[in-house]
Write a protein that binds this DNA or RNA. Structure first.
Length: 1166
RNA sequence: GCUCAAGUGGCGGAAUUGGUAGACGCGCUGGAUUCAAAAUCCAGUUCUUUCGGGAGUGUGGGUUCGAUUCCCACCUUGAGUACCA
């Protein structure tokens, strides 16, 4: 009987499906084990050979655990929301649900043919309303919760409301928006419902906030940072801009500390934990408050008039507008200005002047009088004008208004009114506008991890975007500062990050008071300080921080040294451990740890600082301007978000005409016509009915991809429950995932968000453990090997000498270029022909050698004839004359790897006929000297666009699923990245054939009930031991080797004993389940092999009586000696010394020492 | 720059409480079988050699009777992160 893998695999796949062989029980006496691999994301391309790697590994483990007697949960589903289906819908108009269903069908077929033991009865799909109902439900729970920092736990928002009503928020220690100010119970109770809701939104675990996002106008969507490459979108290369949008955010930052601490409790890979730690970015230090001092006025021009800069935060933006308005006054303004300018009324007036964020027509600062000349437009903005007047009057200004008509009609009467007002008002000193006293009341808070170095702070640096910048800047510095702020705001985030070497900054003119020395230290702004981290301001300690050091050197700021015995003339000293602080008052002589403590203590005493911990982790944006995602269960009343009651879920995605953003820039759901919430009927109704009384608009954003994937592992425990997200019994039984296999690329996305949701659900008492997965291992990625040929773009003719570059790769021509020729027909070059370096190496030329043209002629002659075919008659002389040299410029062209053979060669006619190469049908092909056409190979990620995708279908058809499974495991360690290479698959395939032959010959099964020999038993038990260890260590590659060794040995031993071969096939069955089932059945078993108990290891079969000792001299093994294991050290030494080979090695010398390690080795030191 | 991981034959890789480096497989070489090919089987395959041996796990040191394994410095590659105060 021949091993017919196709029939065998089809037979058992059908059997498993029909019998639901791998169904897990929600209640079982058996111990439970939950193996999960990250569910596939069904894009249109189908599976490639890289995808199954992790699935095969987890399947082997799941099958192994079943053999070990566990009730194994090994489910599978699909992450079926996402962008590709939507993009396809935009192109074709086909509903994304249809596309997704088609893609899933392909995936399912491909997964099934590999023989996974998934429990398909538990399949979930994130795009299934019955599933996303619960994603929406969790969103509502998050909305209805707040995070108490005192208890480090989430609580229902209703409790917070109660607290607010009883005692305000003074005693509430919650994770919330920084803008949430203190209030009393009376205040709270006096507020309207809307005001209360607005405030509560700042406390909820999911909240609406203005966030700056990467907006791609062409795609009409927000992009993640990694979707942007070089400032344009990865997909399509469209420009991306920063834009503020109101979006849902998740307060993951509240959980930062718990997410960090939790890492110590779970068995995840160190590298993954490390990336999560970095991402959370905890730093311990102190916050320090610096008081801003008034600027010391210089003696120069304008020194006495510092007060005219009265603009607010946005002056740098408004100043341009003001200038423009000054240049283009209205007729009335121009007329009035003629009478006001040049102190015509004895006081100085300013035209189109900034106060706060307002541009005022005319201002007299010394009398704090504002004159506004109103045109027609002001009739329509009376309210705004009133508000503006109110604010200005609160600042001590008086505003008087005239109409255009009045000014133009009777200017004298207008001037009279103004004069009267001026007379009535007291003159204020310009310094009162921006007083020149000591303490201005402004404070700058900084975060530092090195409070011990505070005496080394010789300046402060603010981020250009810092709120105080415009306020503290002195008039002298105003222009420079504004220019700098404007310049940095124009630079993109990326530019700023890429260019870290250029040191730039501007002095604000202001000074801060050092908290201890009370000395003034200058305040600078610089773009090396990031607005987004900490407080956007730093105390700069140039002696201890390289960036501060560089900045100080560049701008000649003093660099005081506060470290004992450390030279800081060249660079900053950032070593914490070897520091003794000096020149630092009470910190003198202290080491790092003590100095930090003392510094914080002293700061607290002053009330100017405290110990503080900072996290880099930002809240996660949860809105996407896309169609194909979970809709939010949210409608808006007066702009305030309202949750739809959970009992009305799911809110299903509406139908839309177009999957693109609307013309007004709203997300695709803005195209829906039936997308409003009726609070009477609790139903989604037509938009036309919106009356904002009972029928309200629904949220237009959808949820991101990570929403659905943050809860699926729990839902698998009870996937068809319609009343609850999962039953208490189910979650109490399964608890958490025991083994999760997934790629490391999810380290700071999915795996962090999922942990966050799990912790939140733990706080709510929904789940019994606060980590969703006990153990996690990363599978590596199988890479593709792209193939390239080379096309000649240009042929350059010159009369030069040709020199080989120093690196041996570049050929430079020096001299005069004569002409450049573009081939009329494409010329395609084989690898070595195209690659100068390789060619020259093959020619025996060393790098750096100067070579004459004859050697290159040799090379060019190979393609000369081809080029001659392609160029015009008139150009041929260049190639036939010795006078000219020619070189060429090539560009690589993709070759589909499926037409490349194992020796990296392609068949030229096959290449021409490939659909990818329509343009090259008439091309001239230049082959290697041996006549073959070789491609260049490069290892890259497998991707459709690189034509390097290897589909598992063909492998399965040629070698079978068992071979594919074994081979993917045999390639190397699971977590390693490795290129796919089919070359070795014949090895595992012939192993399977050998295995078959061990059990079956031409006459059928040849297994007998004969007694196993000692050797048989030794082989079997050695294998059991090794395989068990390997599986537990996820070292699947070595267990495949072990099987090969076992089968080779048993074949040599001519073993036919059932007592050996029956346990052996159980060992192999997790790896090659189809052949195992078949042989198992042939051995007379009626039940599937999948639950057969794992063979028991028996040490006694491996006990040896003697050992083949390696005898080494000075650590080098020279020969071996067979000696009994129970021999004493002395006897071993004597026996070894007596051996003639020992004497031969020693050549008469006395050994200095003889080391005997019984059972291991003998080492003779000579 | 920082953090982490990894460097072993022609190739994928094996071996680490320090104890025979190169398991297993691919490829290659030779042989058997065959009219022939495929398939299968057997032998060999780190390099070097005057056939005694010698060298050898990225480089240079160190610890040790003994180092691929431990320590120090450096080089290279990959991944993550990035002016994080």
């Amino acid at each position: 009987m021949k091993y017919n893998f196709n029939d065998i695999e089809a037979k058992w796949q059908k059997y498993w499906a029909e019998n639901q062989t791998f169904k897990a029980e929600n209640h079982s006496e058996k111990p439970k084990y939950y193996v999960l691999d990250m569910f596939p994301y069904p894009s249109g391309a189908g599976l490639h050979v890289g995808h199954p790697l992790g699935y095969i590994a987890s399947d082997i483990y799941a099958r192994y655990k079943r053999h070990k007697g566990f009730n194994v949960l090994h489910p599978q589903g699909y992450d079926s929301f996402g962008l590709p289906a939507e993009q396809y819908a935009i192109q074709t108009g086909q509903h994304p649900a249809i596309t997704t269903a088609e893609n899933i069908k392909t995936y399912r077929r491909q997964l099934d043919q590999i023989g996974f033991s998934f429990d398909w009865s538990r399949e979930v799909r994130t795009s299934d309303p019955n599933y996303y109902k619960w994603t929406q439900w969790i969103f509502i729970q998050l909305f209805e919760s707040w995070y108490c920092k005192e208890h480090e736990k989430a609580f229902p928002i209703s409790e917070l409301v109660k607290l607010f009503a009883e005692e305000g928020n003074a005693n509430v220690n919650a994770a919330c928006d920084a803008t949430a100010q203190e209030f009393t119970a009376e205040q709270w109770n006096s507020w309207s419902s809307e005001e209360q809701q607005e405030l509560l939104l700042k406390y909820r675990l999911t909240y609406l906030a203005e966030t700056e996002v990467n907006w791609c106008p062409a795609l009409g969507t927000v992009l993640a940072n990694d979707e942007i490459v070089n400032g344009v979108s990865e997909r399509g290369g469209h420009p991306v801009i920063r834009k503020k949008m109101t979006q849902w955010s998740m307060r993951i930052s509240a959980y930062a500390e718990r997410l960090l601490q939790g890492l110590d409790t779970i068995d995840w890979t160190d590298s993954l934990k490390e990336s999560q730690r970095n991402w959370i970015g905890k730093s311990v230090g102190a916050s320090v408050t610096f008081k801003v001092l008034s600027p010391a006025l210089s003696e120069g021009k304008g020194a006495k008039t510092p007060g005219y800069m009265t603009g607010g935060n946005n002056s740098h933006l408004l100043i341009e507008r003001a200038k423009e308005m000054r240049a283009n006054p209205t007729q009335a303004e121009a007329a009035l200005w003629q009478s006001l300018k040049g102190k015509k009324l004895d006081v100085k007036f300013r035209q189109q002047h900034l106060i706060e964020d307002y541009i005022l027509d005319f201002v007299c600062l010394s009398k704090q009088l504002i004159i506004e000349v109103d045109g027609k437009i002001h009739e329509s903005q009376i309210e705004e004008d009133a508000k503006r007047t109110e604010i200005l009057e609160n600042n001590g200004y008086k505003v008087i208004r005239f109409k255009n008509k009045e000014v133009l009609g009777d200017i004298d009467s207008v001037l009279n009114t103004i004069s009267e007002e001026l007379a009535q008002r007291e003159s204020v000193n310009s310094e009162q506008v921006l007083p020149s006293g000591k303490d201005l009341g402004w404070e700058i808070e900084v975060f530092t991890t090195r409070p011990d170095t505070i005496f080394g702070a010789s300046f402060m640096t603010l981020a250009p975007e810092h709120d105080l910048v415009s306020q503290i800047t002195t008039p002298e510095q105003k222009e420079a500062v504004e220019d700098y702020v404007l310049a940095t705001s124009k630079r993109s985030e990326r530019d700023r990050m890429a260019d870290v070497k250029t040191i730039s900054g501007v002095f604000t003119g202001a000074y801060a008071e050092h908290p201890f020395t009370k000395e003034p230290i200058p305040i600078w702004i610089g773009d090396y300080v990031l607005a987004g981290y900490g407080t956007g301001a730093v105390m700069s300690v140039p002696c201890g921080d390289q960036r501060d050091y560089d900045f100080a050197k560049h701008f000649n700021i003093p660099i005081p040294n506060i470290f004992e015995g450390v030279d800081i003339s060249e660079e900053a000293f950032a070593d914490k451990d070897n520091t003794v602080i000096a020149n630092s008052d009470f910190l003198n002589g202290l080491k790092y740890k003590k100095a930090v403590k003392r510094a914080i203590f002293e700061l607290e005493k002053l009330g100017q600082g405290e110990g503080k911990t900072n996290y880099r982790l930002r809240d996660a944006v949860f809105s996407r301007q896309r169609y194909w995602g979970e809709p939010f269960p949210v409608y808006y009343v007066n702009g305030m978000p309202q949750m739809i009651d959970a009992k009305h879920l799911p809110i299903t995605l509406p139908e839309v005409e177009k999957y693109l953003p609307t013309e007004t820039g709203e997300p695709p759901l803005g195209n829906a016509t039936v997308w409003a919430w009726n609070t009477d009927t609790n139903d989604v109704v037509s938009n036309d009915l919106i009356d904002n009384e009972t029928i309200f608009p629904l949220e237009l954003n959808t949820m991101p991809g990570w929403a659905g994937s943050s809860q699926y592992f729990n839902r698998y425990m009870d996937p068809h429950n319609e009343d609850e997200i999962f039953s208490k019994e189910a979650i109490d039984y399964w608890q958490q995932v025991d083994l999760y296999i997934g790629g490391s690329e999810h380290a700071t996305g999915h795996l962090l968000y999922a942990r966050f949701w799990q912790k939140f659900m733990f706080d709510l008492g929904l789940v019994p453990v606060d980590e969703f997965s006990k153990k996690l291992i990363n599978q590596g990625m199988i890479l593709g090997t792209s193939a390239f040929a080379f096309r000649i773009d240009n042929i350059i003719i010159d009369k030069s000498e040709i020199i080989l570059g120093k690196d041996g790769k570049e050929v430079r021509t020096i001299g005069e270029q004569v002409t450049e020729i573009k081939p009329a027909r494409p010329i395609i070059l084989s690898y070595y022909i195209a690659d100068t370096a390789v060619f020259l190496k093959n020619s025996g030329i060393n790098s750096g050698d100067s070579i004459d043209s004859s050697i290159l002629d040799k090379r060019f002659n190979i393609i000369k004839n081809s080029i001659l075919e392609s160029v015009a008659e008139s150009e041929k002389e260049y190639f036939n004359s010795k006078e000219y040299h020619y070189s060429y410029i090539t560009s690589p062209i993709q070759v589909d790897v499926n037409i490349v053979n194992a020796s990296d060669e392609i068949n030229v006619s096959e290449f021409k006929n490939h659909p990818l190469n329509k343009d090259y049908k008439e091309a001239i092909f230049v082959t290697e000297t041996d006549g073959n056409f070789k491609v260049k190979r490069e290892v890259e990620k497998m991707s459709k666009s690189k034509y390097n995708v290897v589909n598992p279908d063909q492998i399965v058809a040629d070698y079978g699923a068992d071979s594919l499974r074994l081979y993917e495991m045999f390639l190397g360690p699971l977590e390693q990245y490795k290129p796919w290479n089919t070359a070795g698959i014949t090895g595992v395939h012939s192993f399977l054939k050998k295995l078959w032959k061990l059990y079956v010959d031409d006459n059928g099964l040849k297994v007998t009930d004969s007694e196993p020999t000692k050797d048989n038993l030794k082989t079997l038990h050695k294998t059991i031991k090794k395989v068990e260890e390997d599986i537990e260590n996820f070292s699947f590659n070595t267990s495949v080797s072990t099987f090969m060794i076992a089968v080779n040995e048993l074949t040599v031993q001519k073993c036919a004993s059932k007592a050996i071969l029956e346990p052996l096939i159980i060992l192999i069955s997790p790896y090659a389940p189809h052949i195992a089932e078949e042989l198992w059945e042939m051995l007379g078993n009626n039940e599937s092999i999948s639950t057969a108990p794992f063979p028991k290891f028996d040490e006694s079969h491996l006990v040896e009586s003697s050992k083949n000792y390696p005898i080494s001299f000075n650590g080098k093994m020279r020969f071996t000696m067979e000696l009994p294991l129970d021999m004493s050290k002395e006897d071993i030494e004597a026996a070894v010394m007596a051996n003639e080979k020992t004497q031969e090695q020693l050549q008469g010398r006395e050994p200095k020492k003889v080391i005997v390690v019984p059972g291991k080795i003998v080492n003779i030191v000579g």
